[in-house]
């Protein structure tokens, strides 16, 4: 049992408020992604859960036990550090084995786990090397392997794939998801990459300025953003927000806009066309406001053309222009 309850955690560094009275509950075996821009407090929150940083206020419970005042080693978790923190004086195999050795695991189990995780992270050829003899991406994979090797009940990962090249990242993402679900590991996964969060998580918590803006399933975060920030941070390209009547904003995703016959919709002057293969991305203006539209790949459109747009009514998300919060959606 390794559910986590974060209860009113706040953290200030001098005058900087990194976290503001944050609450979050993660169920046993759940995979939660903490998603937010750089500097929003993701690493700080993870370090508080691990016990490496003391919170200014609030409690952390792991498996129902209050661990707020326990040292990291008594919390029974593993962590992948954003800066790897792979021990420079130990070979890759000893790095991976470190946690098991500290736990006085049996030799056979250590060997088995080192081999297994090295295989999973494609590190087998490098087991006898020192970290200084590895690339950044390889070092990062050692950090992941070191955490997986202890088969933790609770795993904290701080941007663990950030330094891998695109193809390997896709590969590793799928492997991680598979392994962690199989093992039933409760996972908190920090990332600033919204696709990664969407692909991996049972639930996503979007952090902004030390607060959770919204927490929910990837689909809820994507289709029903609670705030303007969530809508513009999640999704690539982000959601469009168009000024409407009565202090409202109309939020609409670029792919939820259809082309209609002349005069039947909003006039849209195309300035940039980006054919991406699966999609064709249009950027232009409607009524003086910048709008992005994502069409299925087969459309051929020239820059400078004027098209007519119609947002799908059931996909419109109305927002309060002043507060940036979503409005009751019946008004649409």
């Amino acid at each position: 049992m390794a559910g986590i309850v974060i209860d009113g955690i706040s953290k200030a560094f001098g005058n900087t408020v990194a976290l503001a009275a944050l609450d979050l509950a993660v169920a046993d075996r759940e995979f939660v992604a903490l998603l937010g821009p750089s500097g929003c407090g993701k690493t700080t929150l993870l370090r508080i859960i691990a016990g490496l940083e003391t919170a200014t206020t609030g409690r952390v419970l792991i498996g129902g036990r209050d661990v707020t005042n326990l040292p990291p080693r008594a919390r029974g978790l593993a962590m992948v550090f954003q800066n790897y923190a792979v021990f420079p004086h130990l070979r890759v195999c000893d790095n991976i084995a470190f946690g098991l050795k500290m736990a006085r695991a049996e030799r056979t189990r250590i060997d088995r786990q080192v081999a297994r995780t090295a295989e999973l992270l494609q590190l087998a050829p490098y087991l006898d090397r020192y970290p200084a003899q590895l690339s950044g991406g390889q070092r990062q994979r050692v950090a992941v392997a070191r955490a997986l090797a202890v088969e933790p009940a609770l795993l904290l990962m701080d941007e663990p794939l950030s330094n891998l090249d695109a193809l390997l990242r896709l590969d590793m993402r799928a492997e991680l998801k598979d392994v962690l679900r199989e093992a039933g590991t409760t996972t908190i996964y920090v990332t600033h990459d919204q696709t990664e969060a969407m692909a991996l998580a049972d639930r996503i918590a979007v952090l902004h300025g030390g607060r959770i803006e919204q927490i929910g399933s990837p689909s809820a975060i994507y289709h029903s953003p609670a705030t303007r920030f969530v809508g513009s941070f999640v999704g690539s390209p982000p959601m469009n927000f168009l000024r409407a009547d009565a202090g409202r904003l109309m939020g609409i995703r670029p792919e939820d806009i259809d082309l209609v016959d002349a005069g039947a919709g909003l006039p849209f002057r195309v300035s940039v066309v980006e054919p991406l293969g699966a999609q064709t991305l249009l950027t232009g203006t409607t009524d003086g406001q910048v709008v992005r539209v994502a069409l299925p790949g087969e459309h051929v459109i020239a820059a400078g053309a004027t098209l007519f747009l119609r947002p799908r009514p059931d996909r419109i998300r109305w927002m309060d222009a002043a507060t940036g919060n979503a409005l009751a959606q019946a008004a649409g």
Binding site: L52, R73, F87, P88, M102, R146
Partner: peptide
Amino acid sequence: PKEYAEAASVFGAS
């Protein structure tokens, strides 16, 4: 760097 001691403490070292 203190990160190495931090990593060791997370992985159970006294």
